[in-house]
């Protein structure tokens, strides 16, 4: 029980700091959290299957696409990115699904808030993390953000979930 609580605390702490990096647009540091083969995935269906490569996603980013996405947001060339301020995301309901020596799988609830042209836009999501233990922390190996809005019509997004 002690061990489980410890893993839960470590994972929660990791997820919170990742959230803080993204909300404050520290995208460079966020890129460093990833393993080289890691995948950032935002499926186009809330309850789709796991065959992401043969399915249309909102985002399916390998290391290269992640770097390009960050570059797009930071370059100043994207008018929508320039119009996007900091986001505020709340994370709760963290649960460890698997706690192996090489891989920890966790799931949590997230609500992200964005102020878009003076109007609050809210995105509730179910987020699953696959984390690789690394030193006294973790590295991101896979992050799947299942947006409730995915089944309906989203607003356009110029930030990272």
């Amino acid at each position: 029980m002690t061990t489980n609580t410890q893993v839960l605390n470590e994972v929660t702490s990791f997820i919170w700091s990742e959230a803080d990096l993204l909300d404050h647009q520290n995208y460079g540091e966020w890129l460093d959290l990833w393993t080289e083969e890691g995948l950032y995935i935002v499926p186009a269906e809330f309850e789709g299957d796991e065959n992401f490569k043969d399915t249309l996603n909102l985002a399916l980013d390998d290391a290269n696409m992640r770097r390009m996405r960050v570059n797009r947001l930071e370059s100043g060339e994207s008018v929508s990115a320039r119009a996007t301020g900091n986001t505020v995301r709340m994370i709760s309901r963290v649960r460890i699904l698997e706690a192996g020596d090489d891989l920890v799988v966790a799931r949590c609830a997230m609500t992200l808030n964005e102020m878009r042209h003076g109007k609050l836009v809210t995105y509730p999501a179910d987020v699953e993390y696959q984390l690789q233990p690394s030193g006294d922390s973790y590295r991101l190996n896979r992050k799947v953000v299942r947006l409730m809005h995915a089944d309906s019509f989203l607003r356009t997004v110029s930030f990272i979930f």
């Binding site: 909102l58 696409m65 390009m68 929508s80 990115a81 607003r155 356009t156 997004v157």
Partner: peptide, 19 residues
């Protein structure tokens, strides 16, 4: 699919700027 994701949709590299 990957080419579509790159530009299109709400998280593509093109559509949000159109929007």
């Amino acid at each position: 699919l990957r080419v579509h994701e790159h530009f299109q949709g709400p998280m593509g590299f093109g559509t949000p700027d159109d929007g």
